[in-house]
Design a protein around this nucleic acid. Structure first.
Lengths: 220, 220
DNA sequence: TTTATTTTTTAGTTAACTCTAATTTTATTT
DNA sequence: AAATAAAATTAGAGTTAACTAAAAAATAAA
């Protein structure tokens, strides 16, 4: 089964959307993620349906098939391995990697990915803390909790972010809340859901609920 | 000037064919190299002519322009750098690299290529022994200067070290002065010859003359 | 339950790149 | 020089993937 670059991008978006939200994936949502128009999405859904990577009934909704899931995870695997490469080997900042990885993930060569994986020493997580599926699409994910849902005095380690936009990542870098940082919740403001946290046992900082809800923590 | 992947491939083929000397490049020759039909080549030649990367008069022949040469050499540079990566780092055999490098050469990111070049230690030849053009399309060697010999406010990129002992490299990695890092001389202490430098526009650090004299910088 | 709104899909274009078939231009023979 | 062969180009059409505008279906509101 061969997918075009465009098809891979759609399928990846569909996979991510089906994973995070429980409700069915909407045409508009996909259009927003892919940065395209709903009309183009409808068109592509028909094609993806024909290729049996999704089950699609128009106006009704869609469901990703096992085949689709496997293919999407292969693309995600490639994307995350390249991100590790860019950060670990080429010293990219973790907020500079996405755009390039978006291109690299479409390079077709099983040998390349096998070798890259070995070269990087079989990493289990990418620089944002997201798990890297193995070649069969299996994921070992760690139990994580959004920072704004933690209780006072609870501690942990930042392991991932939900929103990985460059702007957000730059902000985190600036305040020192990078992936791997050890944090502890000092206080929570009930009124607006904002939190005060201690970073790496030295710096305290305030975070709005919006920001905190985008930070995933591995509790300790 | 932005070229599509297809345009890059045509231009690269045209460059190679023109270099091979011989008479002017024929439509049929290009078709043979690109594995396409002469009709498609004619079409593309018109487009490349409009973009002024070749000079084209139909039925007459074509000549690659300076602009075209520069762009072709950029693609060739990327191709050959990736080949070095595949062989040196991922242990591909020299006859397995071409197909993958054909894909990788179209990834668009100046930063990526700069970092890759640095990571591979500025190779001058690819695994087949073909020369790797520099970022300006030249094969000339670049002038380097020891870090301790630079003047205040001068900037550049770390391109090599004289002492490549593991201990020294570990030290450099620790302070963030790896190969490829962009640096700027902030201050020099006349008394002991030590320098203060800015690394990657964010971190400043002091270096003894001994250390600085072992670091080679490509001035910019 | 109608009406209004939102969502989704279809219809019709466009752009890039390819093809086959037909035509035009250049080159080679006799 | 005329006839023939080869090379190059144009014409027309297909594919992929995008778009705008209009229609259809589903959902929400009156």
């Amino acid at each position: 089964m061969e997918l075009t670059t465009a098809e891979e991008n759609y399928l990846k978006a569909i996979y991510h959307l089906s994973e995070e939200g429980k409700k069915s994936v909407s045409t508009n949502d996909i259009a927003a993620v892919i940065q395209t128009k709903p009309a183009s999405v409808s068109d592509m859904l028909r094609k993806l349906g024909e290729k049996e990577v999704i089950q699609y009934r128009k106006y009704y909704g869609l469901q990703i098939t096992e085949l689709g899931k496997r293919l999407a995870l292969q693309t995600i695997r490639k994307h995350r391995l390249w991100e590790v490469f860019l950060v670990d080997k080429l010293h990219f900042a973790w907020d500079e990697v996405h755009e390039v990885a978006e291109q690299l993930e479409h390079i077709q060569s099983t040998l390349l990915i096998e070798r890259l994986d070995a070269y990087l020493n079989y990493p289990k997580f990418d620089p944002h803390g997201d798990p890297i599926p193995d070649e069969y699409g299996d994921v070992r994910s760690r139990p994580r909790i959004a920072l704004n849902e933690m209780n006072i005095d609870q501690g942990g380690q930042i392991v991932a972010v939900k929103d990985s936009s460059a702007a957000f990542l730059r902000y985190l870098d600036k305040v020192g809340a990078y992936i791997g940082a050890r944090i502890k919740v000092l206080d929570k403001v009930e009124f607006d859901g904002s939190v005060e946290i201690l970073v790496d046992q030295k710096k305290t900082l305030f975070m709005s609920k919006d920001v905190a809800s985008n930070i995933l923590v591995l509790q300790s």
